[in-house]
Design a protein around this nucleic acid. Sequence first.
DNA 1: GTCTATAGGTTGATAGAC
DNA 2: GTCTATCAACCTATAGAC
Lengths: 200, 200
Amino acid sequence: MTTSTGGERRTGSETRAEILRVALRLFTEKGFEATSTRDISSALGMTKSSLYYHFKNKEEIVASLMEERRHELDDFVGWLAAQPAAPDLLERAALRWVEGATPERLQAMRLAHANQPMMRRLVESGSDVRSSFDRVIDLVVTEGAGQEERLLARMVFDTIGAALLAALGTDAEDHAVIAAARHASAALARATAERRAAPA
Amino acid sequence: MTTSTGGERRTGSETRAEILRVALRLFTEKGFEATSTRDISSALGMTKSSLYYHFKNKEEIVASLMEERRHELDDFVGWLAAQPAAPDLLERAALRWVEGATPERLQAMRLAHANQPMMRRLVESGSDVRSSFDRVIDLVVTEGAGQEERLLARMVFDTIGAALLAALGTDAEDHAVIAAARHASAALARATAERRAAPA
DNA sequence: GTCTATAGGTTGATAGAC
DNA sequence: GTCTATCAACCTATAGAC
């Protein structure tokens, strides 16, 4: 068992993972720009320079953090693309996405929320989480859908994000966040389906 | 008509408002820490020093930005406290809150979302938007409600936040965001009411 | 792999002239 | 009210010894 407060012995290959763990916490709590490389290294009991042995620069740390979570979404897109069209596809898919949430995904979302401007920069420079989400929406929305319908579909999928937002500053635990999100996804998806069946 | 790109003459009393307008845009786009006082001043066609005539420091600019929006929430709490208890109070109150959204409020929320860590610091140092929201939830939730019920009530009220999150990186306009939020609030509130009537 | 030392630059903020 | 000039503090990142 190693701690992040320094002093413990580390085997070489664990160091990178520990840097990521500490950086994730600090970037989420204080923000990317407000967290210096010194903050990270001293929390680990090492010097700034050692960080640069494991990562090319500061941005690569956060990029690595996000890439870990990237595959989950791609896998989900693969599954979704293989599903036959059906009226309840939106609800089924959203629930699958929400219920598949792991603690790691929640933490990554907290990181992204706490650092929106830097995530935008990261997207512009290559790594792309959001365009994969565009695909999800395309697959789940009726053809020729308008701005508002697409927005609502996004909300059905991102109830975890919404729940995390609502939980900010409270002591709500992960399981409560996920339970609330599942509830919200189901309610929103059903309301959307009813609206399709009987449009105004 | 004055522009933010500099060169135009300004009367003295307008300067403060213009600084706020430009800072709001930059803090939202690039983030508080990534926006230097030089960025703000040069966007206005003045020097950094002039900024410090109008504001004590950088943080006071963003504090001033948030305080502008503060009264809206307090007014709402006043209205809500005067309402008699009723089964549909949650839905009515949430819809009132969502439909009363102004473009200024949306922008302030975008600012807050884009700068979560600095907003937390700001809360810790006095100004308090979130504790007012606690009062809203207290007034709208059944007595002795658990973590999850409170979280869901928060989500019913913060569908604008959720819609803004879903709209990130898209070209969705304010009216579409509000329309989606209204729809979501109604659906979530109704589902919550049904659940109360027939608990699992 | 981790260290010391340091380069090279930006930042928020102040003093004081006009 | 706005300017010029300046500062100390801090930052990311690299070079090179061990």
